[in-house]
Write a protein that binds this DNA or RNA. Structure first.
Lengths: 243, 243
DNA sequence: TAGTGGTCTAGACCACCCT
DNA sequence: GGGTGGTCTAGACCACTAC
């Protein structure tokens, strides 16, 4: 593993340490080398090492103790999803130990619903690109997700696109837009008959409902998302550093 | 507003800028002074200003554009809860625009349930301090929360304590422990008869269920929490910065 | 007391946006 | 071209913990 220029050094250091934790170079519960030692070994400044470690601590992967050292957190190996990491459904499924698959149910242009128009801050009945997908974990339906993008943003001729992309990639590739932040609402909901059928559920146990809007740096809404999680299939376990 | 030594400078700068956004010194959608100007004005280094701004950006309060400037995010004024800010129930209720109140339903020592023992990594039947509370928003029941702490941690003679404290304060005051990180599970659940009664709900609409364990830096479980949110009373709206 | 992480500074160079 | 944020460095001092 070598430090090279183009990618930010702090990110590279972050990746290297993550890797060493994963391959047990740094053992769970044990102390990492000191910041100075790491800086010396990798040939970077201590500030860069500190930035990388701060990120790892925020993700709960390491614990830092002043006057003592930095330790590998032994309790977060099975927990990949951070708070705020609910968007890349495929990664979420993998983090739960399943093999992810995606079914695109519909992909069409249609007028926005009132709710969508409100969240996207657009005039009602503007046309949107609607993408309805089902995410499977080892073949079992786990997430039913609707994503809606103002058609005006779509910059590709015809309607040829890869329906399996996570929303941020989709926006980057086909709309040349970058997500700056998202506003999310979490609710609980009962599945209606059709949803229950799609998710192949017998019981009427409730589902998690996630309502999201994605914005770029100019505060323009880029996309709206409405997702239903079956938490009996997919555990939603998250780590949050305290700070 | 003056910079003084004892509190970390980056925090003070963070507070000052937050204040200026709140009192509309910096207007929504408008550009902040440049990092260098802020550093000069406040008499601190640019690095300190940058650390403060990075935190504000992570909280979604400002948007930073390279080569352009830092802008006040006009869309997050009504959104206080960040991802991971689900713990201070009173603050959450205030952020929703209600007046918070707390009812302590029970406060007792009892043996741990199997689920609690598992999450707290303790032997079954060890005794715990159990705290069952109801949080009200403008008088309406919004959150039903059970918190459980291993009795061995409790360092106060007798059982005199303030039952209205958020969990992190409770642990600090009565157990001399600091929370380093938390592991959370989010689920959806139907209220049973007794819970429906406590929350004064007629409908059988589902609730959000939050299962949490809190750890200190030594990876010891400090507390376990089981909370039910009525999202029809309390909106759970959160911001997540992307970067 | 020695070593660790926590904080802060001053200064450099770069990438990018605006005009 | 001039100003902005993005990155990185070297070095200083402090607070805390383990021994």
């Amino acid at each position: 593993m070598q430090i090279e220029r183009p990618r930010p050094i702090t990110e590279q250091v972050n990746t290297i340490i993550r890797q060493r934790i994963r391959d047990r170079t740094y053992l769970p519960g044990k102390r990492l080398p000191s910041e100075s030692d790491l800086a010396l070994e990798l040939g970077v400044s201590r500030a860069s090492v500190r930035t990388a470690l701060a990120r790892l601590a925020a993700d709960g992967l390491v614990l830092r103790k002043q006057g003592d050292g930095t330790y590998v957190n032994e309790r977060v190996h099975d927990v990949d999803a951070r708070f705020g990491g609910l968007w890349d459904f495929s990664r979420l499924i993998e983090a739960n130990g399943y093999h992810p698959a995606i079914q695109t149910l519909t992909a069409e242009r249609r007028p926005a619903t009132p709710q969508e128009a409100e969240w996207l801050a657009m005039a009602p009945d503007m046309t949107v690109l609607s993408l309805v997908r089902l995410f499977l974990a080892d073949g079992r339906p786990a997430i039913y997700a609707t994503n809606v993008i103002p058609a005006a943003l779509f910059k590709v001729e015809g309607d040829r696109f890869d329906g399996s992309l996570p929303i941020q990639r989709f926006l980057r590739n086909y709309c040349r837009e970058e997500i700056a932040f998202a506003v999310s609402n979490i609710e609980a909901a009962i599945a209606d008959e059709s949803l229950r059928q799609v998710l192949r559920r017998e019981s009427d146990a409730p589902l998690l409902k996630l309502i999201e809007t994605f914005y770029n740096k100019d505060n323009h809404p880029l996309a709206f998302g409405l997702s239903y999680y079956d938490h009996t299939v997919l555990r939603l376990r998250m780590v949050q550093a305290w700070g």
